[in-house]
């Protein structure tokens, strides 16, 4: 602590070391965890939603098939950003409205009053007096849901295509051996589907990584927020004044994202190799590889 006691008296490397370890910078470093948390939570949810969507579209039950088709085509037809802005607000209001109806049935005043949206304080999500991190956490949950809906639809498309790409002969063979439809799906169709889905899913993962700065758009203090905030020029009101350093901060983010996507690419190459080793009619796979 002594080391950084008076920032105005130190300079050079010592100044930089102190500057880069201020509590504000620590918040910046922590915000990288937000990105990882988003990826770690969203990815499995996206896979699940995508799987559900793809299976729904393949279903022999017409309403379910329509639902799957509507879901995927709706998300595909609307710009992502619109969804990212719409979903959290709509969801937030829906939750508060529902809570309002349940918790304050005695309030008869309209919730939508002119341009205001007013629910009773018990219905607030989170509650007014909740800690700051709860508010941030709720915003994060809404963001995860928005990401999952949008990317779930993309994944549904990929998985739907992959399920269709599995050669019919492989499935027919299972039926010829007395497998039930369910067994055929679980033991043959799905395991073989991954090979065809992998290139598309790896692509989707890269897009997901690159979409994480949208968190900033949703009001979450992510790495972009902190880079911009820390990088902006600082006058004497701050302990560590400096000119406009946004370039360096954004350069840092650039390197971070490059590293992340490069590393992901490596992992997917490995997975691809593993799947290809145990693979299928090689001639069926070739066009997909070439198209990548």
């Amino acid at each position: 602590m002594e080391f950084c006691a008076d920032p105005s008296l130190i300079s050079g490397w010592r100044w930089l070391a102190c500057y880069l370890t201020t509590p504000k910078h620590q918040l910046f470093y922590l915000s990288f965890l937000t990105v990882f948390a988003l990826l770690a939570i969203t990815a499995p949810v996206v896979l699940l939603m995508g799987f559900a969507g793809a299976v729904a579209r393949l279903s022999s039950f017409a309403p379910l098939r329509w639902l799957g088709t509507i879901y995927t085509s709706m998300v595909r037809g609307v710009p992502d950003v619109i969804f990212f802005l719409f979903v959290p607000i709509a969801l937030d209001q829906l939750v508060e409205l529902t809570r309002h109806k349940i918790k304050c049935p005695q309030v008869t005043d309209a919730v939508y009053r002119g341009n205001e949206f007013i629910v009773c304080s018990e219905a607030k999500m989170p509650l007014q007096d909740a800690a700051a991190w709860v508010h941030q956490g709720w915003g994060f949950v809404l963001a995860v849901i928005a990401f999952s809906i949008v990317f779930g639809a993309f994944a549904a498309n990929t998985l739907f295509g992959a399920l269709n790409a599995v050669p019919e002969k492989q499935l027919e063979t299972a039926r010829a051996f007395g497998f039930t439809e369910r067994q055929t799906f679980r033991k043959i169709h799905v395991p073989q589907m991954w090979t065809y889905a992998l290139p598309g899913l790896s692509n989707l993962w890269m897009i997901l990584i690159k979409a994480t700065p949208l968190l900033f758009l949703l009001g979450i203090e992510d790495i972009v927020y902190w880079a911009r905030e820390l990088g902006g020029s600082k006058t004497g009101y701050f302990a560590y004044p400096h000119p406009d350093w946004r370039l360096w901060y954004f350069l840092g983010l650039l390197v971070f994202y490059l590293l992340l996507t490069w590393l992901s690419g490596k992992v997917f190459d490995r997975l691809n190799q593993r799947f290809n080793r145990q693979n299928i009619d090689q001639q069926v796979l070739k066009p997909i590889e070439a198209g990548r």
Binding site: T22, P23, Q26, L27, E229, F238
Partner: peptide
């Protein structure tokens, strides 16, 4: 983000 009215100081 509007010093000196309001800003995030070095302690965050």
């Amino acid at each position: 983000a509007y010093a000196p009215f309001n800003f995030v100081n070095d302690n965050g």
